[in-house]
Simulated scan of single mutants.
Amino acid sequence: MKWNLRWAAAKRDIWRPSDLLPVFEAVGFTPSLSKVAALWSGKPISVRLDDLDKICAALDCTVADLLEAEPVAVADGNRDQAKRAVGDGGAPSGPVRPTPRRSGQRRSLPPN
Rank of each mutant, 00 (worst) to 15 (best):
A64D: 15
L20P: 00
D19R: 08
R48M: 07
S93Y: 11
V27G: 06
D65T: 03
L59Q: 07
A64Y: 15
N78Q: 13
W3D: 00
W40H: 06
A64R: 15
D80M: 03
Q105V: 07
R84Q: 10
D88I: 11
D51K: 12
D50I: 06
L33K: 12
V74P: 00
P17L: 03
D19T: 03
P71Y: 03
G28A: 01
V47N: 01
A57H: 08
R107I: 07
G94Q: 14
A26F: 10
G90S: 13
W40C: 06
A37P: 01
G77Y: 03
R16I: 10
K83N: 12
V23E: 02
T30K: 04
M1N: 02
L33Q: 06
V96P: 07
D51C: 11
A26M: 08
S46K: 14
D65P: 02
P111H: 03
L5C: 01
P31I: 03
A10S: 04
C61A: 13
G42D: 09
G90Y: 10
A85P: 01
A73Y: 12
I55Y: 08
W40L: 09
L49M: 13
L49G: 11
L66C: 04
D60P: 04
L109K: 11
S103F: 14
R79T: 13
V63T: 04
F24C: 02
T62R: 14
A10Y: 05
S41T: 13
L67H: 12
I14G: 02
P95S: 09
D60E: 12
A64F: 15
A57Q: 12
V74A: 00
S32Y: 10
G28K: 01
I55C: 07
V47Y: 03
C61L: 13
P110K: 09
R101V: 11
